[in-house]
Lab assay of single mutants.
Amino acid sequence: DEFHFHWNGRDIRVRGDSEELRRLIEAIKRGELSEEEIERAIEILER
């Protein structure tokens, strides 16, 4: 699976399928994380 979302003017695409990944992306979409937490998560996910 590939998750695709927009954040902070960026087009983010992440491959993978796990419950943890889904929860993280939902939290990002709901605005539950700080900008710094989101940046760090995206860096890890894009590897």
Rank of each mutant, 00 (worst) to 15 (best):
I28H: 02
G31M: 07
L24F: 13
E32Y: 11
F5G: 00
R23Q: 10
W7C: 06
L33P: 04
D11T: 15
E43G: 12
V14R: 00
A41D: 04
E32L: 11
V14P: 03
E46L: 11
F3P: 05
E26D: 13
E35L: 09
I44N: 13
G9D: 13
V14F: 07
V14Q: 01
I44W: 15
I42P: 00
A27F: 08
K29M: 14
S18V: 09
R40D: 06
G31Y: 06
R30H: 11
N8A: 05
H6G: 01
I44Y: 12
L24P: 00
I28E: 01
S34H: 09
D1W: 01
D17S: 12
E19Q: 11
D17H: 10
F3M: 03
R22I: 15
A41Q: 13
I44S: 12
E32G: 10
I38S: 03
E20Q: 12
R22T: 06
L45R: 01
E46K: 04
R13G: 04
K29W: 08
A27I: 10
E43S: 10
A41P: 00
R30A: 11
R22Q: 10
E2G: 06
R10T: 06
L24H: 02
R15T: 12
E46V: 10
A27C: 03
R15K: 15
R40E: 07
E35Y: 15
H6M: 02
L45I: 10
R40L: 11
R40W: 10
E26I: 11
D1N: 09
E2V: 03
R13E: 09
G16W: 03
E36G: 10
S34D: 11
A41W: 13
E39N: 14
R30M: 12
I44A: 14
G31P: 02
L45T: 04
A41N: 09
R13Y: 13
L24T: 05
E46C: 05
R13P: 07
I42H: 02
E43W: 01
R47F: 03
R10L: 07
I25G: 03
I12H: 03
D1A: 05
R47G: 14
E20I: 09
F3Y: 12
E36M: 13
I38M: 12
G16C: 03
E46G: 08
S18M: 07
R23G: 13
S18Y: 07
D17Y: 05
G31H: 15
L45E: 02
E36W: 12
F5E: 01
W7L: 08
G31F: 08
R47E: 15
L21Q: 14
E35R: 13
I44E: 12
D11R: 11
D17W: 06
E19T: 10
E36K: 15
R10H: 05
H4N: 08
I38T: 14
E19S: 10
E26L: 08
R23D: 11
